[in-house]
């Protein structure tokens, strides 16, 4: 017990930064708001004071240049972490991410790898509306060459960030402000290779498989408790790594339960939920299916601001449990 220490999702991220900055002189951090704790919750508090403003670089309002510069620094041997306090802001940086970082290794015959990490934060709700709310992980997961990581748990928030930064590939590490208050007791850091990481069963069950990512994994877990009261046993799979995507764990689970529900905080069309279902459908024999698989995603609309619309926009536990109950009734 003595080696366990309590962390929140936010402080777990902070401890990953500290670990990386303590152990790897080639790590530096660049992005907006790094000298102000406000933008990023408690996940980067005082890094500037501890490691100096040369390594913790708060920047001009220049997402494209900062991200491109990090790609270049990684090619020159550094391990940069770019922080975009809101995923919506990093759309200015798409060229550096999609045309440059994602393709570089392949274009030069595997001789150089931009080993940068881009920390993109999903920050939504609070009537902020369409341009301050997006969860665009499915876009990035579409791109060969990008590793896309979404921690749902406190342990993953820390350990997958470390694995991302130590990976020689460009990684999009996406965390969610709605998870920052989760807490967990964690053992000391153990280094893991990111390419060995993938989806995981985080709660066993036998009647239905519910797949989540990041915050939607938390929703799936909360739903499990409600469903249990109704006599439905749900197995929860947390995707964790969206690209490269390995569906094996989900396939195994559906082979057992015969029922698949995928909860995703992104949109439906060409989204991660559809990808999971397609990958499982290709591999689970027809006779095993007890129900058609179901996607639980955002409505096909930008995020509204008005509180009444915001309330119906985001997925809640009720929606998941009702969908599951209806499907298997």
């Amino acid at each position: 017990m003595s080696t366990l220490k309590e962390f929140s999702y936010g402080t777990a991220i902070l401890s990953a930064f500290e670990y990386l900055l303590d152990h790897y002189p080639e790590v530096f951090v660049i992005g907006q708001g790094l000298w102000s704790p406000w933008y990023v919750g408690n996940s980067m508090t005082d890094l500037d004071k501890k490691y100096g403003i040369e390594r913790i670089i708060d920047t001009p309002v220049s997402e494209a240049a900062c991200t491109g510069a990090a790609v270049g620094a990684s090619l020159a041997g550094m391990k940069p972490i770019v922080v975009h306090p809101r995923m919506d802001f990093m759309l200015y940086a798409m060229d550096a991410i999609v045309n440059q970082a994602a393709k570089w290794s392949h274009m030069v015959g595997g001789q150089a790898h931009p080993g940068l990490t881009i920390r993109a934060i999903i920050n939504r709700g609070g009537e902020q509306g369409a341009q301050h709310s997006q969860a665009l992980h499915s876009w990035f997961a579409h791109i060969p060459g990008l590793r896309v990581v979404m921690p749902a748990t406190v342990a993953d928030a820390r350990d997958l960030l470390i694995a991302s930064v130590l990976s020689p590939d460009p990684v999009i590490y996406i965390d969610d402000r709605w998870l920052y208050e989760q807490t967990e007791y964690l053992p000391p850091v153990k280094i893991r290779g990111l390419s060995q990481e993938g989806p995981r069963v985080i709660a066993d069950g036998s009647d239905v498989t519910i797949v989540g990512t990041s915050y939607s994994t938390k929703l799936a877990l909360d739903s499990k408790h409600v469903l249990a009261e109704k006599g439905i046993s749900a197995e929860i799979v947390d995707l964790r790594v969206l690209n490269p995507f390995d569906a094996e764990i989900v396939i195994q689970s559906v082979n057992k339960t015969g029922r698949l529900f995928v909860v995703d905080g992104g949109w439906r069309n060409c989204g991660m939920a559809g990808e999971v279902i397609a990958s499982v459908a290709e591999n689970v024999p027809a006779e095993r299916w007890k129900n058609t698989p179901v996607r639980i995603t955002l409505p096909d609309a930008p995020a509204p601001t008005s509180r009444v619309l915001e309330k119906i926009y985001y997925i809640g536990v009720d929606q998941i449990t009702a969908t599951v109950q209806k499907a298997i009734a």
């Binding site: 009537e127 902020q128 509306g129 369409a130 341009q131 301050h132 509204p304 601001t305 008005s306 619309l309």
Partner: peptide
């Protein structure tokens, strides 16, 4: 029409 709020 209530779709944008202060920022839109």
């Amino acid at each position: 029409r209530g779709m944008g709020g202060s920022m839109h």
